[in-house]
Each structure stands twice: as C-alpha cells, then as structure tokens.
C-alpha cells in the first residue's frame, strides 16, 4: 500500500514539554528529511493522501559529566516522541 502513497501531511507536532519551539523544530526537521529521502510530496493537511501525526511526550536533559570545578561539561538530551502515519483514504495505520 505504501507504493500508492504520493503525498503526506505533517502538521506541527504537539509538545507537552514546555521547551519553546521544540515541536516546531522537530516538525521542520521531519519535513526536510522526508523531502531528502522519500518520494512523497509534503503538502497541507486537507489534500494529502496520508498524514503523519506526532507528539513529543517528553524531553529530558541530564548532566552526565562535570569539570573538576563541578560545572556541567557533558549533557545528555533524550526525546520521547510518538508518531502515527495513517492512510487518509482507507484510515489504515501504515506505521
């Protein structure tokens, strides 16, 4: 069925974390990545034959290394994201 998908809508990901712009930045990165790697056109919601809905569930930043003066030196950023890709013609979940 994926061969029949020609276009994809990717609305701005919802973000329950309050980091400013995180959902938007991730959505823009996904747009670019789709355009770089896949044959699907990224189009606005109404006209697409498939839709990728995403939600940032959490963003966690931890210090995992410090300088000898106890200043943060190495930070780890983890993102938890849920996505659902649906064929809008059949309502079938593709991924």
């Amino acid at each position: 069925h994926r061969e029949q998908v020609r276009s994809i809508a990717v609305p701005v990901f919802a973000c329950s974390d309050d980091r400013p712009g995180l959902g938007l930045r991730l959505t823009e990165a996904v747009h670019k990545e789709i355009q770089r790697r896949l044959p699907y056109r990224v189009v606005p919601g109404g006209s697409a034959d498939s839709r990728l809905i995403g939600r940032v569930l959490g963003a966690y930043k931890d210090v995992i290394g410090e300088t000898r003066n106890d200043d943060p030196r190495t930070l780890q950023l983890q993102l938890a994201v849920e996505v659902t890709w649906t064929d809008m013609r059949t309502q079938k979940v593709l991924a």
């Binding site: 995180l22 990165a29 670019k32 896949l38 990728l52 950023l77």
Partner: peptide, 22 residues
C-alpha cells in the same frame, strides 16, 4: 554550542521517524 547540539538530537530523531516511513 548548546543550540547546535540540541539541533543534532532533533535531526537524529527526525531521521528515526522517517525510517518508519520507508
């Protein structure tokens, strides 16, 4: 910089998401 590092994490997550669409 911090901003560049977090953008790298975002770009990596975007690649993982698009892996699902292949």
């Amino acid at each position: 910089s911090m901003a560049t590092a977090s953008q790298q994490v975002i770009d990596r997550m975007a690649r993982q998401i698009v892996d699902l669409l292949e």
